[in-house]
Structures are given as C-alpha cells and as structure tokens.
Amino acid sequence: MTNPQMVMYEEEFNQIQTIVDRVVREANAQVVFIIDKNGQLIAAAGETDQLDTTSLASLTAGNIAATGGIAKLLRENEFSTQFHEGERANIHIQLVGNRVILVVIFDNKTSLGLVRLRVKKASEELNSIFEALLSKVQDPQQSTPFAEITDDDIDNLFND
C-alpha cells in the first residue's frame, strides 16, 4: 500500500474544525475549507451553503496536482502557495505538510496579508494534527469497520 488510508475520527475532526472556524473569524474570510490531495473534503467553515464544496474540492486538488507536476518538471520541490485575485472573490490555496490543502476564500473586507498570517499559523497546527492522525491510522490495533462487512452487504447495495 503506497498511501496510508485516510481516516477521520471525531477527536481529530473537532480539532481541525476548531482551527477552520478560527481562521474564518480571525482572517475575516468568507469560506475556509480543508481537503485531502485527492479532492475529498475534510472540513469546511463560513458561508459554505452558497458554494458547491464538492466541486471546489475536486478542482482545487486538480489544481494542486497540476502545479505539483509543473514544480517537478522545474525540479522544484512543490509550489506550496497559490493566490488568485478576482474582482469580488480571492482565493488563497496552501499545501499543508504535502498532505492536505487549506483553502481560504475572501473578499475586500480583509487583506491578503492578514489571510497569509492566519494561514501560516493554522498550517503548523494542522500539520501536527494530521501527523498524529496518520500514526494512529498506521497503528495495527485500529481495525476498519469494513473487515466485518459480508459479500451479501455489498450485493445488497446494488439490489435496491
């Protein structure tokens, strides 16, 4: 298995959600979310109901993947920060620990400087949470609930 399974538990989720909520407040942002590099949404905060977060997550991950590919060609390690400025909305994309992506969407009520500052602090905290989460996942004591499912369970999924 090349990539460890991504798993999310309540404890870590709450820690992550607290950080995401705080970034919305302290950076005065519209929306903040965290996704994994495969485009799965992990946590979100702010005015998310007006946004298609699933689509955003997949496109952002695609964007990071493409930029990562460019970096490799230039023998750069990774371009870990991206910023796109629009007329009303701006988006700041930060790769955290080469594992997850922190996305901040903000308007002119705040400034890029403030967003950067809050993102930097949050990145460090997130990095250690995900590191802890990963070692927990690799712990062989933790079994998946899927070891228990039967072939019938799987078949039933497709019979209704």
Binding site: Q5, M6, V7, M8, N38
Partner: peptide, 15 residues
Amino acid sequence: MSFINYLSREINCKI
C-alpha cells in the same frame, strides 16, 4: 486511497 470518515459515517472511494 479511500477515505473513511467515522464522524459523518462516510466512505469515499476514487474510481
């Protein structure tokens, strides 16, 4: 790499 979320009780797979 599938993603198991115990909180929202979701399992995500990529095809």
